[in-house]
């Protein structure tokens, strides 16, 4: 097999486990939302996604109580995803967030942190899951 070096590799792979992680299920369910309902009801099992490393930059978590409303984060957000509310608190539009984690570094009170949550797909960009306040 000098001229076609891939053949032995292919045959070997045939008897090995596939490399794909079976998230959320081995085959695409007929409806994903229906599948998620089944999972919630305990009728189906969800294969977990590949674990995230430490210090992964996922959805922003906001500690509202410690926020002093300085507005530094709004100045530094590259995508203008953070809005300073008249109440001296902030609102983050995750839909617009680019997960650069800059606001978490500038926050003087460490009120903003990056959570490891990354499953943020939604049908509505203004849904409750995508607004942090």
């Amino acid at each position: 097999m000098r001229f076609l070096p891939l053949f032995p590799e292919l045959v070997r792979q045939l008897f090995r486990e596939p490399a794909t992680n079976r998230f959320p299920a081995k085959y695409l369910p007929p409806t994903v939302t229906g599948f998620l309902h089944d999972v919630a009801a305990g009728r189906a099992r969800l294969t977990p996604p590949v674990p995230t490393p430490p210090e992964f930059r996922g959805k922003i978590a906001y500690a509202r109580d410690s926020c002093i409303g300085c507005g530094l984060c709004t100045k530094i957000c590259p995508s203008h995803a953070i809005e300073l509310l008249p109440t001296k608190k902030i609102r983050i539009w995750i839909d617009q967030c680019i997960f650069c984690s800059q606001c978490t570094s500038i926050c003087p009170k460490s009120s903003l942190t990056m959570s490891p949550e990354f499953l943020l797909a939604d049908e509505d960009r203004y849904s409750e899951d995508l607004i942090v306040e």
Binding site: E55, F56, R57, C100, S101, M114
Partner: peptide
Amino acid sequence: IENLTGNRVNYG
């Protein structure tokens, strides 16, 4: 890369 920077793409 994800481990070093926190993301697979758009490392920041």
